[in-house]
């Protein structure tokens, strides 16, 4: 059984078709990347799953239940951390719990052990303005996790960070996904990031956008140390580039 399924979804903006007949499935604990150029329709797919856009055709299922056009089931995180500058990190993180009318004290207790797990222990009483970009993204992911940990959509979550921070975040992210057995749909235009972080990569191509290829990354996510420097990593990269129609590049 799949955790999250998208069945033959199509979306058109006025008369212009944006995405056509997209199907994807994510198992529990799996990280799947949706890779495509900027403007290829990745965000449209993202918004449909998040329930912010309603597909004209097709449906979306979470644990077998239809959630097409309903927000609030799948949590998402963007390139912008969207933390509220006037709330402490702790109060930012528990926001989804407060919105569900949970008691503030209980919500804080629930979040407390996770600060350690997410590598942001000690930032509880600080304000977002006092934290680095990487730390803020960690806090944003913790908030996302507290909202609905099962299925998470990440839309280029690391692309605003500098290269060194980003590679630290990649290591951290792999660790988090494993520890919390999160199921993630990662949207990215960064080929290296997709290969490094995913179990599977779906290539979004053509206009209107549709999934043109699926690439399974065989080495397990535990064996990704130094993976980017191996022959097989390059092999995947070549395969993806040719799927994107950039074979000679």
């Amino acid at each position: 059984m799949y955790l999250l399924e998208m069945e033959n979804c199509s979306f058109a903006y006025e008369d212009t078709p944006i995405v056509r007949d997209i199907s994807l499935r994510i198992r529990k604990g799996e990280v799947v990347s949706l890779l495509g150029e900027s403007g290829a329709g990745k965000s449209t797919v993202f918004n449909m799953i998040a329930g912010l856009l309603v597909p004209q055709k097709g449906r979306i299922l979470l644990k077998g239940q239809e959630i097409t056009g309903q927000s609030g089931h799948v949590s998402y995180m963007l390139q912008k951390d969207l933390l509220l500058p006037f709330r402490t990190i702790e109060d930012n993180v528990i926001l989804p719990l407060l919105l569900k009318h949970e008691n503030r004290k209980e919500a804080r207790q629930k979040a407390a052990p996770l600060f350690q797990e997410f590598g942001i222990a000690g930032t509880e009483k600080k304000y977002p303005g006092q934290l680095s970009g990487g730390m803020r993204q960690r806090a944003a992911l913790l908030r996302t996790y507290l909202f609905a940990g099962e299925a998470t959509l990440l839309d280029e979550p690391f692309s605003a960070l500098d290269t060194l921070t980003r590679s630290d975040m990649h290591v951290w992210f792999l660790d988090m996904v494993k520890k919390l057995s999160m199921s993630v749909l990662l949207i990215t235009h960064d080929i290296d990031e997709a290969i490094l972080l995913s179990d599977r990569i779906l290539i979004l191509n053509e206009r209107p956008a549709t999934i043109t290829a699926e690439i399974q990354i065989t080495p397990g996510r535990d064996e990704r140390d130094g993976f980017t420097l191996t022959e097989s990593f390059l092999g995947y990269k070549k395969q993806i580039l040719s799927s994107l129609g950039r074979g000679r590049g």
Partner: peptide, 18 residues
């Protein structure tokens, strides 16, 4: 207020008043 932020909170189930 940032539109993306309002959308995110709405998706988390926040009402207009919240």
């Amino acid at each position: 207020a940032d539109e993306d932020l309002i959308r995110l909170l709405t998706s988390m189930g926040a009402g207009r008043g919240q």
